[in-house]
Design a protein around this nucleic acid. Sequence first.
DNA 1: GGAGTTTTGGACTAGATGATTCACAACACC
DNA 2: GGTGTTGTGAATCATCTAGTCCAAAACTCC
Lengths: 220, 220
Amino acid sequence: MIHNTTRPRGRPRSFDELEALQKATRVFWSKGYDGVTIDDLVAGMGVGRPSLYAVFGGKRTLFLRVLRAYAEKKGALAAKAIFSPQPLRDSLASFLRYSVESATEEGCPAGCLLVCVAPLVDDAEVRQFLQNTTAGGVAMVELRFRDGISAGDIPSDFPVAARASQVADLVRGLTVRAKMGTARKTLLREAEEAVDLVLLPRGTSRGPSGSARKARTVRG
Amino acid sequence: MIHNTTRPRGRPRSFDELEALQKATRVFWSKGYDGVTIDDLVAGMGVGRPSLYAVFGGKRTLFLRVLRAYAEKKGALAAKAIFSPQPLRDSLASFLRYSVESATEEGCPAGCLLVCVAPLVDDAEVRQFLQNTTAGGVAMVELRFRDGISAGDIPSDFPVAARASQVADLVRGLTVRAKMGTARKTLLREAEEAVDLVLLPRGTSRGPSGSARKARTVRG
DNA sequence: GGAGTTTTGGACTAGATGATTCACAACACC
DNA sequence: GGTGTTGTGAATCATCTAGTCCAAAACTCC
């Protein structure tokens, strides 16, 4: 009856592919990878079993698609948080806050698919994707640090690469804590404190840390 | 024939309980919790299926015993690393080094049972145990920081609690990276750099970070 | 050596799970 | 409306999995 030229040939799908993918995300997110059965996916996605196999290929390939979509979305939101026009300190705070909030969202499973679920999947393609994605995350933070140097928010000798890695590790640590059930409030406070840890400049004069540094030299 | 008074009554066990527990640890460590079947455990532990149920109760209770034993052993080694008589800087370096090394041991699964596996287990008892264990870990680092204050390695206003949490988060982050397949060498370097991040004293004079701090005040 | 006790290995059952098949439904095109 | 194409739901099948049962084995005690 309705003449839609761009419509494909046969019977139209009863589900939206992207929406089904999002629902699948929730399933994997809350139950892990090994903990999920095809029946879980069928029930959670609102997709018939044959359709699932026909459209997504199977559990493994579905998970890969889920992972890519999830990472893209999260990456975009993280970039939005860290690159919005504000001083570096606030950018970093926004970034950490977003990380904690997305890992402790009410109505969502705790933790993060990329940190808590995917690393456990014994699959070369997943591993490769994770490596790339995390490298991209670190690069993003590095980039923001460099902007911060240009803007004069941090000194030009700020150890960009090291600090970016440390920020990424902190985020991972906070995310795992979220998965363990630590309250959002606690994690937000720690994230706030971590900003100072990463950004505050080092003084060479104050504090009796000379002995510690000396001991290090002796040791190494 | 042989008269051993302390020996129990019936047929002796064909396996050593603690050894079997260690083998079970490896199985869970490498395959996760949901990924492990009873057959995996039977094969990996060298224990008959009925014996497994009789002695360890089942997968869940076995995992709990595994977890406790694992945490105790790791906690002891971590304490040894951080409390050995040396300046705070070296203690912290030892602690981080141990964390990375134990998560990247050759011949062992990458990562850590407490960080990468247990948080995903949907079980109240496991969750409770994790909370206690991680709290204990943070308390351990705090204690060492206080010793460091007494020894004059760090100033008396050193934010003990915050820094201890941050160290714990960093360790978790590094551990997840290990699980993702990052090389030990890389992680060891980052751990080394992190020592400075945590310990180096803050100066109030140097660096153009005034704008950033100001921005923070404006915001908050 | 015989009785009692505990562990073991193999077998067994009920149920879950992964993946496919097939008849039928819903559309576009002519 | 007829034809070809694609998606859907129900049913199906072989396999895997958890947990239990039982006869035999290995021991202690008497």
